[in-house]
């Protein structure tokens, strides 16, 4: 573990990305302490402070460092809280979708026959139309709320993981080392968990980092359409969407600052994922 960490630290960019991710996670966790205002407390909002530029000192007596949005919400506070919500949604949806997809993909590759056909046809069908459609329908049926949103995101995204896991697992299963394990003989469970899974995981991690970022933007899209989280719990995506209508009137800060936060978060997650992928591939090790 220590050696793993030392190797990770050799890559300065990945180290910086990890620091950024950790800083964002800490900031999101400590949002109630750091944020000058509780954006969920509607009583603390003053419409007189709405759409003020960064640095404006509002009626409550403190400077809005990043300005305020259309409801008079302090943007810095909203971003800190929003980061937390976006991270929660992205990570929850990403890990559940990865698990579901890996199980289905490896099962299809291992079982073959009609099980393989059934699973992979459904996956193909889902990949052939936009994920957002399915998510939209599901959220409309299930209703609003975090759990419902995670279910919708997982249903929309597991197919990517299942495809990747299926492709990787079918390739690995045909390799000699799996045959050698079967010839020992070792049990099917042993072969799947000790041989196939470790070789399938790295591509899944890469897909996973992209999909966490996708889940965050998908959630933002749903929120924008009024089907995601309620407006009283603004995620980053919703903040961007809310400010969008003011872009042309010069009040760019309402969209731009949450947008920067989102981009930094997504890029940092991707960089960490890349380093993890490189490090879990022993052939790339020095």
């Amino acid at each position: 573990m220590r050696a793993f960490w030392r190797e990770y630290a050799e890559n300065r960019v990945a180290l910086a990305a990890l620091a950024v991710v950790l800083a964002i996670v800490c900031a999101a966790l400590a949002a109630p302490l750091l944020a000058p205002q509780d954006p969920y407390d509607l009583a603390s909002l003053d419409l007189m402070d709405a759409r003020r530029p960064p640095g404006f000192v509002g009626s409550s007596g403190y400077a809005h460092l990043l300005g305020t949005d259309a409801q008079g919400r302090d943007l810095l506070s909203a971003i800190l809280y929003g980061l937390g919500i976006s991270l929660q949604m992205g990570l929850a949806a990403g890990t559940v979708a990865l698990t579901v997809g890996a199980v289905l993909g490896i099962l299809a590759a291992q079982a073959g026959g009609w099980v393989e056909t059934a699973i992979m046809r459904v996956v193909d069908l889902q990949l052939s139309f936009p994920a957002i459609l399915l998510a939209l329908v599901l959220v409309a049926v299930l209703g609003q709320g975090k759990t419902q949103l995670v279910i919708a995101l997982v249903a929309a995204q597991y197919a990517y993981f299942a495809r990747t896991a299926y492709g990787a697992a079918s390739a690995e299963r045909r390799k000699d080392y799996v045959e050698a394990a079967a010839a020992t003989p070792l049990s099917t469970a042993h072969i799947v968990f000790r041989h196939v899974l470790p070789n399938v995981l790295p591509p899944l991690i890469v897909v996973g980092t992209v999909q966490v970022a996708n889940a965050i933007s998908l959630e933002a899209t749903l929120s924008f359409l009024g089907l995601g989280l309620p407006p009283t719990e603004p995620s980053l995506g919703m903040l961007i969407a809310n400010g969008f209508q003011y872009m042309m009137s010069g009040r760019t800060w309402i969209s731009v600052y949450p947008g920067i936060a989102l981009i930094v978060l997504i890029v940092a997650i991707n960089l960490v994922g890349d380093q993890l992928r490189d490090q879990t591939n022993p052939r790339l090790r020095r």
Partner: peptide, 18 residues
């Protein structure tokens, strides 16, 4: 287990991650 095998290609017959 009384019968065991040595394969042709030792690049493929060993799990690269173990």
């Amino acid at each position: 287990t009384r019968i065991q095998t040595v394969f042709q290609d030792p690049f493929a017959s060993l799990n690269p991650r173990r």
